[in-house]
């Protein structure tokens, strides 16, 4: 299980949960698990989010999630 920390305004879609636990080994698996558990999140995930794993922005959906990793969902980061 990995615990995914959401930004708080997403709790509207997760029955109030700030942290959602899903069964996943990869970043993509975690995002799919999130949507399966809370379908209301689908448009937000599809619009693009950044997934931060242990302080680093995950490079892609296949990135592994180490056991006990800190996973934080953020709005997509970009730059100028």
């Amino acid at each position: 299980m990995v615990a995914i920390n959401l930004w708080s305004s997403l709790t509207r879609f997760t029955d109030g949960a700030r942290v959602v636990e899903v069964e996943a080994e990869t970043v993509g698996g975690a995002l799919d698990g999130l949507v399966a558990a809370h379908p209301g999140l689908a448009p937000i995930i599809e619009a693009g989010v950044s997934v931060v794993v242990d302080g680093e922005i995950a490079p892609n959906r296949h990135a592994q999630l180490p056991e006990g990793a800190e996973v934080v969902l953020m709005q997509r980061l970009k730059g100028g």
């Binding site: 930004w7 708080s8 305004s9 997403l10 209301g40 448009p43 937000i44 709005q75």
Partner: peptide, 20 residues
Amino acid sequence: ADATVPEGMPPNVVRYMEFG
């Protein structure tokens, strides 16, 4: 407005976020 905006917000708000 996208899915992040709760019902009842002014129509020109197109994205909303809270975190902390």
